[in-house]
Write a protein that binds this DNA or RNA. Structure first.
Length: 817
RNA sequence: GGGGGCGUAGCCCAAUCGGCAGAGGCAGCGGACUUAAAAUCCGCACAGUGUGGGUUCGAGUCCCACCGCCCCUACCA
């Protein structure tokens, strides 16, 4: 069906795909999209998120990139020098999986994908400057990942620690965080639930910047992202208190409620807590060991299932409460997480739901220490986590909970058994991957010297090209002797290289800087270029990166600032999150679901301008939504009609007033400009369509000079959306190449005003008549005019007019008793 | 359990400060062109805004309570 559409169009000489191909060639030849270096103009660094070279551009890429391109083009025409680069996030698991499955080397697979995608990107007709292209799997790029690693290491921001990682027991390998999918945390590749595994891992100390990362004052980002990051960082204020475990020593706990310390009737350690083993009494040993082991084996899903009954066992040990010297039993229970706070808690069942549940199950005393309003002194039916008055708390009785927090904390500090503390939910960023296709971590392990960083001048540590791939789950680097065995840079003795590679989020944390000078040798980027372009002015991308990439890149920029590389605090001044385009079935597009929409079909049939405009037209950009290709024909028709304004074609014969030409042109320019500033592409397109319909209707009735002027404005307004069609029209109009180098249209505000307006006449808020009046009508005259309306009379009748509401230029409302 | 978003015509979506519910498009219907169809062009119709209250001269818009759908998060002490 749709084929017939384009076939018929071609027969009539409209072949958008061919026309667009011609312009793309000419743009490339003329270097139209080489970055403007005219420093007299204000800068605008526009950036769209770094794509992964999965093989083919899908419609989601178009949805993310073409509005971004439209906006960049708009800025360019508004007189900015615009930098709009593109590149490829070329390391990562899919390439390695392809290698294991098909025996293709990840590098070969990746580079051929890039080759294909580069061609497809060009068919988009975007103004990307391909001279700035960055490919993160090239040594000239990842060398600087390693350089950053060394700088982080020097500053103590990179360290090695044993940490639990997500491990897929079926693929026998660790997974990147983004490859653990769904609430039930399954491996994306095979669907097996992941487990935790302890491995020595490299981490970046992002928590060092936790406090600063909570400060968004320098940036104009969506509230949503700021909230997500704030929650992710999860700052909690409270106190740390020291409990003494008999036969072991002091163990710190974190609490947000030091005011409830007197209500602590038991003490809980996480199963992984080092104190568990050493405090368990001999008679409890067997049971505790069994519990700890089963907790360790349990999948994350089961372990964190909130609906599950609380479990745990007594260790036989006792801990001493620092405020009252009371001995309370120590339990080990998996509802306490090693990863948060200190991995141990004081349990206050009366005022914490979880502790309450546990105490009920184990028959532990529930002691009220904060009296709820109107409390009768009896036992609480459920935990009371709210505010109230302190009771059963020794000398603190009678204080409000709020005051109690401070006083108890002070009391602890005086005695050296505690202090005020802030805890963050944010964990340090685990960057180790037991994978081949990533940046080698530039570290050497020497039996004599220990962990030794590779000297800067020896960078890059290259990935060996001849690695062998087998589905053993072991990185090929571990079996690559040429890579593995080396000499210690410190003592010259025999040593082994670190075989872990870096998380690919490392690559995307600073790529915006590399774009400035992708081949620069003396640093991650050329500072002279940085002066010209940094920081990024407008970033666009999906919200799914809110707490990963967008947090990491903020962290990186702060470290770069502290290294003296940049002099600002935030990488991207403004951020816009587009929505996600779903499959026709309203599900996320994925190969396995078979609902992936291939843009190429639509480009071939309707042209890239049509697809660009269609994606911008279907709704607000931040909303996303399911793909419904049935509407693209309408957008294609619009472009064809627009072109026919200059290329001849069917006379319209529609009815419209040719006298309005200048006013409507000015009004269209104003609306398009305003909506484009605000990223409202859908309404902008609607405005351009409306204007096209009008122009077609009056074309034959307008004189040549007026027509030429109106078209000149219209084509420039169209240019950011449909760059090829606009260029074609511009040329057909006899204007000089290229429309994309022209200025954005201005408009005369005074032209927009109508001389006559339609006044709405209401009686008791109900529409009763419309009257035409001069635009500058006075309030008195408007009211008189409304009263005089015959249609109004029956509704007013004998009733008394109590009040007349007048909204200038809009309506008169008569209130009748 | 917590946080966020969205409900307007058959469908996708518009609607400035609260002021005519409709800009645009899809699908539909009628007409023109055609031997016919497609394409193209012209025109037409279609909802009272998820539900129930409230504020107001006036509510799609503001407030309260529900219903439905979607996304994120998850024992964070």
């Amino acid at each position: 069906m749709t084929d017939r559409v384009s076939e018929a169009s071609r027969r009539r000489g409209y072949d958008p795909a061919a026309m667009e191909g011609r312009w793309q060639e000419q743009w490339a030849e003329s270097g139209l999209y080489k970055t403007d270096e005219d420093l007299r103009k204000p800068k605008h660094y526009a950036l769209t998120m770094l794509p992964y070279p999965s093989g083919d551009l899908h419609v989601g890429h178009w949805y993310a990139m073409t509005p971004s391109d439209t906006r960049a083009r708009f800025m360019r025409m508004q007189g900015y020098r615009v930098f709009f680069p593109i590149g490829f996030d070329a390391f990562g698991l899919p390439a390695e999986n392809a290698a294991i499955r098909n025996g293709i080397h990840p590098r070969k697979w990746t580079l051929s994908n890039i080759e294909r995608m580069r061609g497809q990107l060009k068919s988009m007709g975007a103004m990307f400057d391909f001279d700035a292209e960055v490919v993160t799997c090239e040594p000239e790029y990842y060398k600087w990942n390693q350089w950053f690693f060394l700088k982080f290491f020097e500053k103590g921001l990179a360290y090695r620690d044993e940490a639990p990682v997500d491990w897929c027991p079926s693929c026998n390998t660790t997974l990147a965080r983004e490859q653990v999918v769904g609430l039930d945390r399954r491996c994306e590749r095979c669907g097996t639930p992941v487990i935790k595994k302890n491995l020595a891992q490299w981490l970046f100390k992002i928590t060092y910047y936790a406090e600063e990362l909570l400060d968004f004052s320098g940036i104009d980002w969506p509230e949503r992202v700021k909230t997500l990051q704030t929650n992710w960082i999860g700052r909690s204020e409270g106190a740390e208190a020291v409990f003494d475990i008999e036969g072991y020593g002091p163990v710190e706990v974190f609490t947000t409620r030091p005011d409830t310390l007197f209500g602590a009737t038991f003490f809980v350690l996480a199963p992984e807590h080092p104190a568990v083993e050493r405090t368990t009494t001999p008679d409890r040993e067997a049971e505790v060991r069994e519990y700890v082991e089963s907790a360790g084996k349990m999948s994350e899903i089961d372990r964190t299932d909130v609906t599950r009954r609380k479990t745990g066992v007594a260790t036989g040990a006792y801990a001493t409460n620092p405020v009252n010297g009371e001995r309370v039993p120590v339990y080990v229970a998996d509802y306490v997480l090693m990863a948060y706070g200190t991995g141990a808690i004081m349990a206050v069942p009366a005022h914490d739901e979880r502790d309450f549940e546990f105490a009920k199950q184990f028959g532990i005393e529930i002691r009220t220490v904060i009296a709820p309003p109107g409390w009768d002194g009896g036992e609480l039916a459920e935990a009371y986590p709210g505010e109230g008055t302190m009771v059963n708390s020794g000398g603190f009785d009678g204080l409000s909970a709020e005051e109690g927090k401070e006083r108890v904390t002070g009391w602890l500090e005086e005695r050296g058994t505690g202090h005020a503390a802030v805890t963050y939910r944010l964990r340090d960023w685990l960057i180790s991957r037991q994978r081949y296709w990533g940046t080698p971590i530039p570290i050497v392990h020497c039996a004599a010297c220990g962990t030794v960083p590779v000297p800067e001048e020896d960078l890059p540590v290259r990935l060996p090209e001849d690695a062998e791939f087998a589905p053993t789950g072991e990185s090929p680097l571990k079996r690559d002797e040429g890579f593995l065995y080396t000499t210690c840079p410190r003592c010259g003795g025999p040593a082994e290289r670190e075989t872990d590679t870096m998380d690919t989020f490392m690559d995307s944390s600073w790529y915006q800087y590399r774009y400035l000078s992708p081949h620069y040798d003396d640093g991650p980027f050329d500072p002279a270029e940085g002066e010209k372009w940094l920081p990024v002015d407008q970033y666009t991308g999906g919200i799914e990166h809110a707490v990963m990439h967008l947090l990491y890149t903020r962290f990186f920029t702060k470290v770069m600032r502290d290294l003296g590389l940049v002099d600002f605090d935030e990488p991207m001044v403004r951020l816009f999150n587009q929505g996600i385009i779903l499959g026709e079935d309203a599900e996320k597009m994925s190969k396995s679901r078979g609902n992936v929409v291939n843009p190429q079909e639509f480009v071939d049939r309707y042209g890239s301008d049509a697809l660009r405009c269609f994606l911008m037209f279907i709704g607000p950009w931040d909303q996303g939504g399911p793909w419904d290709g049935s509407g693209i024909g309408g957008v294609a028709r619009f472009l064809r009609r627009a072109l026919s304004l200059v290329a001849g074609g069917d006379p319209s014969g529609g009815q419209a007033n040719p006298d309005d030409l200048e006013r409507r042109t000015a009004r269209t320019a104003r609306k398009v400009t305003g909506d484009l500033r605000a990223f409202r592409f859908n309404t902008t397109l609607a405005t351009l369509m409306e204007h096209t319909n009008y122009l077609l209707a009056v074309k034959s009735e307008v004189g040549e000079a007026r027509w030429a002027e109106a078209m000149n404005v219209f084509v420039r307004l169209l240019a950011p959306f449909a760059p090829h069609h606009a260029e074609e029209m511009w040329t057909l109009m006899g204007e000089k190449f290229s429309v994309h180098e022209r200025d954005w249209p201005e408009w005369d505000e005074s032209l927009i005003q109508e001389e006559e307006i339609t006044l709405i006449v209401q009686v008791n808020g109900k529409l009763r008549d419309r009257v035409t009046a001069p635009a500058d009508i006075s309030e008195e005259a408007a009211k008189e005019l409304a009263l005089a309306s015959e249609k109004v009379q029956p509704h007013v009748g004998e009733g008394e007019i109590k009040k007349v509401v007048y909204v200038p230029g809009r309506l008169v409302n008569m209130v009748v008793a």
